[in-house]
Amino acid sequence: MPSLIVEPLNTQHFIMDRDDRKRNKNIGKNFMCRLQCMFSHSSSSESRLSLEDTQQWSQSLERLLESKYGLATFRNFLKSEYSDENIEFWLTCEDYKKIKSSFRMSSKAKKIYEQFIKAESPKEINIDYHTREQIKRNVKTPTMHCFDDAQKIVYGLMERDSYPRFLRSDIYRTLLENLAADATKG
Rank of each mutant, 00 (worst) to 15 (best):
E85H: 12
F31R: 09
D170S: 11
R160T: 11
C37H: 12
S169G: 03
K110P: 02
N24W: 01
T143I: 05
L78D: 12
T131K: 00
K25Y: 12
S67V: 09
W57T: 10
L49D: 04
I171Q: 12
N26T: 07
R165I: 13
K108Q: 13
I153K: 13
T184K: 15
E114H: 08
S102I: 08
Q115A: 07
C33V: 13
T131H: 02
R160E: 14
F166R: 00
E120S: 14
R168S: 11
P142Q: 09
Q115R: 10
Y69T: 04
A109E: 01
L78T: 13
L35Q: 10
D53M: 10
M1Y: 01
S43C: 12
T184Y: 11
L61I: 09
K110R: 13
N76H: 13
R75C: 03
D20A: 14
E159V: 03
K98N: 11
T11V: 09
H13D: 11
E94Q: 14
L61M: 09
S50R: 14
V6D: 10
E124L: 14
T73S: 11
E85G: 07
V139S: 06
K140M: 14
Q12F: 08
D19N: 14
S67N: 12
L91E: 10
H13Y: 15
N178K: 02
Q134R: 07
S67K: 12
K97E: 08
R75Y: 02
C37Y: 10
D19Y: 15
S121L: 04
C33P: 01
K25D: 11
L91Q: 07
T54S: 14
L35N: 07
E133L: 14
G70T: 01
L157E: 06
F14Y: 10
R63S: 11
F103K: 09
L49N: 05
K100P: 04
W90R: 03
N24Q: 06
K68Q: 05
N86S: 04
D19R: 15
K118V: 01
A72C: 05
E133R: 15
D182Y: 00
P8M: 11
M105I: 01
K140E: 15
P164V: 13
E177V: 01
F89L: 00
S58G: 08
R48S: 07
D53V: 07
L9H: 06
Y129E: 03
K108T: 15
V139M: 06
H145A: 11
R21H: 14
S107M: 13
I5E: 10
F14M: 08
D17K: 06
N24D: 05
D53A: 13
I117Q: 00
F39P: 03
E114D: 14
S101I: 02
G186D: 01
L65S: 03
M158Y: 03
M1I: 04
M16P: 01
S58F: 03
Y163N: 10
L49V: 06
P164R: 15
L71Y: 13
K97F: 00
N26H: 08
Q134C: 04
I99C: 04
N178M: 00
E81V: 05
F116K: 07
S58W: 01
F116I: 09
S42A: 08
K185D: 05
M38R: 15
T131E: 03
S102R: 06
D17V: 04
L9T: 07
S44Q: 08
F74S: 08
H13C: 12
L157Y: 02
T92W: 00
K136T: 12
S47Y: 12
S45G: 13
M16K: 15
E85P: 07
Y129L: 00
E88L: 15
A180V: 09
I171C: 12
